[in-house]
Amino acid sequence: MKDSLEMEQPILTDQPLSWWKKSLNIRTACLYLLPSFFLFAVFLFYPMAKTVYLSFFLTDQQGIANVFVGLENYQYLLQSESFRKSIKATILFVLYTVPTGVMIALALALLTNEKVKGIGIFRTMYASTMGVSVAASSVVWLFLFHPSIGFFNKIITAIGGESVSWLLDPSWALVSISVTTIWMNIGFSFLILLGGLQNIDEQLYESAKIDGASYLYKLRRITIPMLSPTLFFVLTVSLINAFQTFGQVDILTQGGPSESTNVIVYSIYREAFVNYQFGTASAQSVFLFLCILIVTIMQFKFGEKKVHYQ
């Protein structure tokens, strides 16, 4: 402590620190964030706001807002039979695809989490549907569903059943599209769940083994709780994806028959780019946005509690 008292006076070259020098970090950060921000602003924030704006107007074919109509677009939607059908189709579609899809992917992931010879090949096969585009898989399934030469009807007629018009019967069309969608999503969900399973500490299982725990006990007490964040993520992504379905509808049914597969994004597409009703299409878009917002918030609110984070 003596040293501090004996200190000689240092010559301070004290240049006053300018704001410029002090803000170095924030300026650098801005530089790194600028591309993202610019793109988000132009292609996400601005169009989202514009969508809301357009939903209050009647527009011309170029999408220029002409007449302010307030909430009339929304009123129109709520009264529209077609929109109600679209909502019903969307909800049913979500219910058909999300739980089943995640369950199947989980089962496959559990199956391939066993360490046996040649498991890599099976993993690759299960994951393969991720590499098949929406358009390609829709076309393949279109053929599988073909009323006369399609694989399914061939099998049914071979065993003496009556062929089904999968995509032309209003009571079957949505189911058919759901099956296609579940198949398409298996790869992605499977891959992520498998990754999640492999992140679980092996020692947990070893200690359970020493305790003599059964497979189901381990599944219930170790696997599912430890996997819950991943499962939660897959569920959220699947749900959002289900709301955004478009390609399979466009190729398989074009929203028909009698609008039974007219899910919301397809409905927006038709309204905007076939009927040029940008106003009502925008109102539907706002509706879609709200749906996804609510779903995400609800999932986080209710899901978060049940999820075990490490």
């Binding site: 240092p10 010559i11 301070l12 070259t13 004290d14 620190l17 020098k21 002090k22």
Partner: peptide
Amino acid sequence: GTLTIGQKKVND
């Protein structure tokens, strides 16, 4: 406070 290295203030 002040930090100097070789008589030069280096705080910033």
